[in-house]
């Protein structure tokens, strides 16, 4: 059985007009010529739609990086994790957000709040990097 290809588009419900003038009969506004497009948040937040996932942050371990409980994380799996990046990692089968740092024993997941010990990443640990956090959306 064959399924039709769907267009690879992504739309957003939040679109703001770049410039808009009131419609008044008989007086075309000169500004109308400049209305070309609307701002699409997806364009700014998502570089690789196929590889981008949203996750919900839990806990307080990354408060220092401005990540609060309940914040929305934009995670791009196409990015290669590098030292200094905030990543979503899998530790003991669970998702966690931490900063990828270089510790004395190699790559390490480091929290940014007191009381959370660093988690070493090595050949004999069950830790994998799931994706790179590219944006944090926080409700003020």
């Amino acid at each position: 059985m064959k399924t039709p290809a769907r267009p690879a588009t992504q739309t957003t419900a939040i679109a703001r007009p770049l410039l808009a003038s009131r419609v008044e009969a008989g007086f075309p506004s000169p500004a109308d010529d400049y209305v070309e497009r609307t701002l699409d948040l997806n364009e700014e937040l998502i570089t690789h739609p196929a590889a981008t996932f949203f996750l919900r942050a839990g806990g307080r371990s990354m408060l220092g990086a401005g990540i609060h409980d309940g914040d929305l994380l934009v995670v791009d799996r196409s990015k290669t994790p590098e030292t200094g990046m905030v990543v979503v990692a899998v530790v003991d089968g669970e998702f966690t957000v931490k900063r990828l740092t270089r510790g004395p024993d190699g790559p390490t997941l480091t929290a940014e709040h007191r009381g959370y010990p660093p988690i070493p990443i090595g050949p004999d640990t069950e830790v994998t990097i799931w994706g790179v956090v590219t944006w944090v959306l926080h409700r003020p």
């Binding site: 064959k2 399924t3 290809a5 769907r6 739609p49 196929a50 590889a51």
Partner: peptide, 18 residues
């Protein structure tokens, strides 16, 4: 859909069979 989108970056002529 994500798998197909990723494949199409490399090989654009696809038939989604299932």
């Amino acid at each position: 859909r994500r798998v197909v989108q990723t494949i199409m970056r490399f090989i654009p002529d696809v038939e989604i069979y299932s």
